[in-house]
Amino acid sequence: MKNNKTKLTPEEHRLFGDLMPEELEDVLHSGFNRRHFVKLMGMATAGLLASYALGAEQLFARAVEMEDIPDLIPEAIENGVTVNFKVNSTARNVLVDSRMTLLDTLRERIGLTGSKKGCDHGQCGACTVIVDGQRVLSCLTLAATCQGKSVITIEGLAKDNELNPMQAAFLKHDGFQCGFCTPGQICSAVALMKEAKEGQASFATKNISTDPKSIILSDEEIAERMSGNICRCGAYPNIVAAIKEAQTGENVPQNWLFTD
């Protein structure tokens, strides 16, 4: 971590001071990193964050700042390929083994562990990222083929402290349980918004032979178009609700309720 990358807001300062006092110095000095994030997530699960919602949400939204990518020792790479590409708008230059997938490069070399390795065989969608505007599977993409391309991951969707509307909709509608498939679901859904706007068809589209025009997605269309993202927790109804809300910008009733 580079020094002082993260400027804490007063709410965030209070949050760390109260909940994680032993980490405060570290965060102030080195920035907010994955370890802090994981600890914070643990507290969120335990319900400790309720009164700090504002500060916590900003921290979750903020793209984690990373240091330069260290080269591996030459012996660790059999057929080296140097790749220059953009990840979340930041230029990256990384030497990889020709076998390395984009997913492993993001996670293991660049330190962006938001994209998940579910099946590693193109069957689950947990590794979905957006490359040059298209949602693709990073587990079936060789990093070596990404020269000159622009990759957006879950870490790059929020703008500063503001969540992407799709992220906010997933939170509101509880579009997840364990959260493992969520980065892939959200990247997939964000790209889907552009596809629907362009009038791209799906297998569920009626009258396919007519000219493409922008469409508001039905539940059936959303299910078909999101079928490449598997959710083992079965949060599908909530994911569909979140996508509908993000697409229309109108309130969609939540499928869940607080009970006494």
């Binding site: 693709v136 589209t205 032979s209 007519t210 999101m226």
Partner: peptide, 26 residues
């Protein structure tokens, strides 16, 4: 999704869209 294919060969559009997932077709 090419307008020429959707209009003149809709069977092909339909067949392609029946396969795999959006990510894989991309």
């Amino acid at each position: 999704n090419h307008p020429l294919i959707r209009k003149n060969f809709p069977m092909l559009s339909k067949a392609i869209l029946a396969g795999a997932s959006a990510q894989i077709r991309n």
